[in-house]
Design a protein around this nucleic acid. Structure first.
Lengths: 219, 219
DNA sequence: AGCCGCTTGTGAACGCAGGAACAAAGTCCG
DNA sequence: CGGACTTTGTTCCTGCGTTCACAAGCGGCT
């Protein structure tokens, strides 16, 4: 049997990652226990929802007291698989790619870039952090040698699909796409998309809805 | 008074922005009409869902033929409010902030940065694109002078809440937060969060879940 | 030892998004 | 001019996520 059903909703997983970060802050502050209400308000969610999210891991709190910070952190770390370091490759070393390659937040959370790739000869050989930018022709070799399981795409939209195909064929099972296109990937490969201009447009729409006086559509 | 009900689901708005981009590509390719199926597959969604999304704008297709590309583009542009340019300020000119300030995709979609701010004296005065980085003390003045309605936060987590408060107090109604914290904002201010390490952690979790399943199946 | 208050964990209802199927409408062809 | 095909717009339904509300359990106090 499966005492913990392996099916944790995706939305819940995203929140678990947030809880984990809040817990780290609390631990730094010297706290040893937290209540669901406190944790929920720090994470910006409903207390009942938080408890339900946590219930997917089995009981891990003490009634009448709350959650043990260290214990819960351990549990979340193990469930999310942050314990072992994961090898990532990054394709497209433009402004955004360089920023991501240099972003310290990844290394401390179990993600390590093992390869940076770009098509432009001008960028090949450039050093970012402790890595050198390689040519695209080395992509498959590096993925095979390092066993990288995650690929990050920060290329122009036109070539993103081609890179996606090559990553998938090379055995990369998870792709994070920043290019403003919808990628098609074979079954068994997860693709997540972060589209910055869509975020801004949604924000603009909500703001426009809130201030209809500024629109002046009927005039 | 409301031929179009003002309540368009947020998830739909995000997809409308995607459709708009796909339509731009199609228009560049010379296409004049598209069917819902074609548009849906290009956007990576279900055809029925796409039609439902578009139905929020009222009937804008021709039965038996499809959608007129230019007309639909016009309609979407007007609903999303991409027509007029929106003034944005960006706070925190680190690697990520610099990348965003230099990202061409925003300017072509109706978003214009009118102020870049950083706390570090080393960065103040630096030029990015056609803007100069200013000190944080000028933040309120610039927001007031330009009427900026959107603020983007790419600061370290520790100072993000303070910046959020100052932006909200200055009259910025929409905030896009890249800092790895959950921000609290007064009512009437929309906050959207883009958390890169959460995206990676979700991806890692999905991949981790997939691998043991594959092992069990192939054995 | 017993009671009380606090907090977790779970069960149920509500609302929402997503998907499939169907009727209306317009066009193309004979 | 009429029929048939294509495609939209809508309606229904199913499933998921979220929220509310309550019972169970644990620690502290008397």
């Amino acid at each position: 049997m499966q005492p913990r059903p392996r099916t944790i909703p995706e939305a819940t997983v995203a929140r678990l990652a947030v809880y984990l970060r809040v817990l780290a802050t609390l631990a730094d502050g010297g706290r040893s226990t937290v209540s669901s209400g406190e944790l929920a308000s720090a994470a910006g969610v409903n207390p009942a929802g938080l408890r339900k999210d946590l219930s997917h891991l089995g009981p891990c709190g003490v009634r009448g007291v709350g959650y043990d910070v260290d214990l819960l952190r351990d549990r979340l770390t193990r469930v999310l698989g942050v314990g072992r370091s994961r090898a990532c490759v990054l394709v497209g070393i433009g402004n955004l790619g360089s920023a991501l390659a240099d972003y310290a937040g990844f290394g401390t959370r179990g993600f390590e870039f093992v390869g940076l790739f770009d098509a432009s000869p001008a960028r090949i050989g450039q050093r970012i952090g402790n890595l050198q930018v390689r040519g695209l022709d080395e992509l498959e070799d590096v993925v095979a040698a390092t066993g990288a399981s995650i690929g990050v795409i920060t290329t122009p939209a036109e070539v993103a699909q081609g890179i996606c195909d090559r990553l998938a064929a090379a055995g990369v099972g998870s792709i994070l796409n920043f290019a403003p296109v919808t990628l098609a990937a074979p079954a068994g490969v997860d693709v997540r998309k972060v589209d910055l201009s869509v975020e801004l447009q949604v924000l603009a729409f909500l703001g426009q809805q809130r201030v209809p006086a500024e629109v002046g559509e009927s005039a």
